[in-house]
Design a protein around this nucleic acid. Structure first.
Length: 594
RNA sequence: GGAGCUUUAGCUCAGUUUGGUUAGAGCGCCAGUCUGUCACACUGGAGGCCGCGAGUUCGAGUCUCGUAAGCUCCGCCA
């Protein structure tokens, strides 16, 4: 097709260019036909420029102009001139283009939703017509931030002497953590590749190979249920270094985050970031990824009620549980119904109930007051800083559950009271360190790696690996921004015998360990350097940088909560011949029955 | 695996409490008028399987049951 190619984009012309002949290409954002004067807002990804057709002097252009509808693709030629009435809402608002020639390059059907403006549109419609949703300014801005982040990442790590190496997308299935996505092999019928949950082992092997500083922006895949911040395929900034300790990794990361915030948000942030041990994070905020933009700390009252006759408390204390509270400032006015809602909220996290204490008109109101002595009530009021109009929420359960419940309530209260809304332009950066090496399953006596099985124990925990392995700590570090876990890493095990011991503690026999991770154990035999690293969730970083609370809005082509793509219709059936080539037969009875 | 919310015009939603004539609004769309608009304005018009399937009822957008899709959360996510 012959058409006049643009001399400028739709966002760059200013009053200085007045008098110039220019050509613009783009989409008709909106057309306003005033009869003997036609205005068209021409849009491309750089901006909007108003073009004018004057029918009296250019009847041919007017004829075309009258046919133009929203989203038609145009090429326009004309002269830049000062506007009679400027529009101060857009950067090009001082000028307009008087048309000499206008060409319709393509028509458009009426789009199913407005491209212009920021109107709310149903998620399913947006995903089905993703090509139109991506045309909207909101998503274009998100993609732009994302692209900038790629560039900053590459340049920062390149400046720091890292090299980027690609690791396989088809690899061995090692279903230790999340479910793997599997890919059947045609050449090895009955065998499967897995898509990587992370390039963890490959990057460690690259350290053994002597690359010392590796990074990669890499897609990872986990076949687990989705959430508003979780997609089955997501992007990770993967980093690994040799001959380093934890502080080196943390320092490098802080420089990286500083550069991102400066270059994308023009915000200067100060390092080093605060550090909290896992234990302190849990005991103060009820979370291993606390949002520190507001305070509302959890207080333990175990000692205050140590001798309480109140059966609920007594039982919890006898089983080494945790009784703790938060002070919901100014929430004493909550109705019975609102408190019931909070209780139901807490029950989602496994709470059996929720006790509370209010101070209204100088008087304490509480369903459990009659079980507490005056001294206990006084000490609780003191430790909680109970003031007029406050509501204390008290949870008693196992250590982990009680604190997790209060941590969730802490966030819920902050949301309800507008505390989060007020803090939305603030940023809190935090390292959570000293994670336990192991985590016990709730319903069995089995232990799992809290991080992954290649995480190094702290050196002072090496002894404990022998005596009390399940109390040992890991040299692990999570980067938490505004209550989101955006990065996690550790110093890895580079000693083969410790790695073997870890597998054993996780219940893997020598055979199983060799079957699954033999190649890693092999590599550790040949001069593995001390090494460690970190990986960042790129999608979550973009969410924070754009202030968007949904991961789908920072990914060009995301999946729905059932893992489907509404645009191209995946996942989909495949033909019999495709299956037989792979030596596969479907047996859907089971899933149809259940 | 479990819980909750939503589904009505092209889009965003009201209507469901208490079943009852012809299901509404705003925006958009179509036609016409209009020389300074920028969410143009004005006049007129078209547009509905009330997600889908059963059931209750003289009668269902409205009540009951089932089902699908989207979203949010718990479990899950080494």
């Amino acid at each position: 097709m012959n058409f006049n190619k643009r001399t400028h984009n739709c966002g760059e012309l200013r009053i200085n260019e007045a008098g110039q002949n220019v050509v613009l290409n783009g989409w008709a954002n909106v057309a306003r036909d005033l009869g003997n004067l036609i205005f068209i807002d021409l849009r491309d990804r750089w901006g909007i420029t108003q073009i004018v057709i004057e029918p009296d002097s250019n009847p041919e252009a007017a004829k075309i102009g009258q046919q133009i509808r929203s989203e038609f693709v145009l090429s326009v030629s004309g002269i830049v001139r000062k506007r009679e009435n400027p529009n101060d809402k857009i950067p090009t608002g001082l000028i307009e283009i008087l048309i000499s020639e206008i060409q319709i390059l393509n028509q458009s059907e009426l789009p199913p939703f407005h491209i212009t403006g920021d109107s709310e549109v149903g998620e399913d419609l947006r995903l089905k017509y993703r090509f139109l949703d991506l045309r909207r300014q909101r998503l274009q801005n998100n993609m732009l931030v994302r692209s900038k982040l790629y560039q900053i990442t590459h340049s920062y790590f390149y400046d720091n002497d890292f090299i980027e190496i690609e690791t396989p997308v088809l690899m061995k299935s090692t279903p230790e953590g999340a479910r793997d996505f599997l890919v059947p092999s045609r050449l090895h019928k009955g065998n499967f590749y897995a898509l990587p949950q992370s390039p963890q082992i490959f990057k460690q092997i690259l350290m053994v190979s002597g690359y010392e500083r590796y990074m990669q922006i890499v897609k990872c895949f986990r076949d687990e249920d989705l959430r508003s911040d979780r997609q089955p395929e997501f992007t990770q900034i993967d980093v690994e270094m040799s001959f380093v300790n934890q502080d080196d990794i943390i320092e490098l990361t802080e420089g990286f985050i500083k550069r991102i915030w400066k270059e994308i948000l023009n915000v200067d942030i100060t390092a080093p970031f605060q550090r909290l041990s896992y234990k302190d994070a849990m005991e103060n905020y009820g979370s291993d990824k606390p949002d520190l933009r507001f305070d509302m700390k959890i207080k333990s009252i175990n000692e205050i009620v140590a001798n309480s006759e109140f059966k609920v408390f007594k039982d919890i204390l006898e089983s080494d549980g945790q009784i703790a509270l938060i002070n919901a400032k100014g929430c004493a006015s909550y109705s019975r119904k609102q408190i019931d809602e909070l209780t139901n909220f807490a029950k989602k996290y496994g709470a059996k109930g929720l006790a509370w204490i209010k101070l209204i008109d100088g008087e304490i109101k509480s369903p459990i007051a009659k079980f507490l002595t005056e001294k206990e009530l006084k000490e609780i009021s003191e430790i909680a800083n109970l003031e007029e109009g406050d509501l204390l929420l008290i949870s008693s359960d196992t250590w982990n559950k009680s604190l997790t419940i209060l941590g969730a309530l802490r966030l819920e209260i902050a949301k309800k009271q507008g505390i989060l809304e007020k803090a939305k332009n603030n940023y809190s950066f935090l390292w959570v360190v000293d994670f336990p090496l192991f985590e016990k399953a709730e319903d069995s006596d089995e232990y799992y790696s809290m991080h992954h099985p290649f995480t190094s124990p702290k050196t002072d925990s090496l002894d404990m690996l022998e005596k009390d392995p399940y109390s040992a700590n890991a040299i692990a570090h999570d980067l938490v921004i505004n209550g989101h876990e955006v990065g996690g890493g550790s110093i890895r095990i580079h000693d083969k015998s410790i790695q073997e011991k870890m597998f054993k503690l996780l219940g893997l026999s020598d055979e199983e360990a060799n079957e699954k991770f033999g190649f890693l154990l092999d590599a550790l035999k040949y001069g593995a350097p001390p090494h460690g690293g970190i990986a960042f969730g790129l999608d979550r970083l973009v969410m924070i940088l754009t202030g968007i609370d949904n991961i789908r809005d920072v990914i060009a082509f995301p999946k729905t909560t059932t893992g489907a793509s509404l645009m191209e219709g995946s996942p989909s059936n495949v033909s019999e011949s495709q299956l037989s080539e792979l030596g596969l037969k479907l047996d859907l009875k089971k899933s149809a029955d259940s």
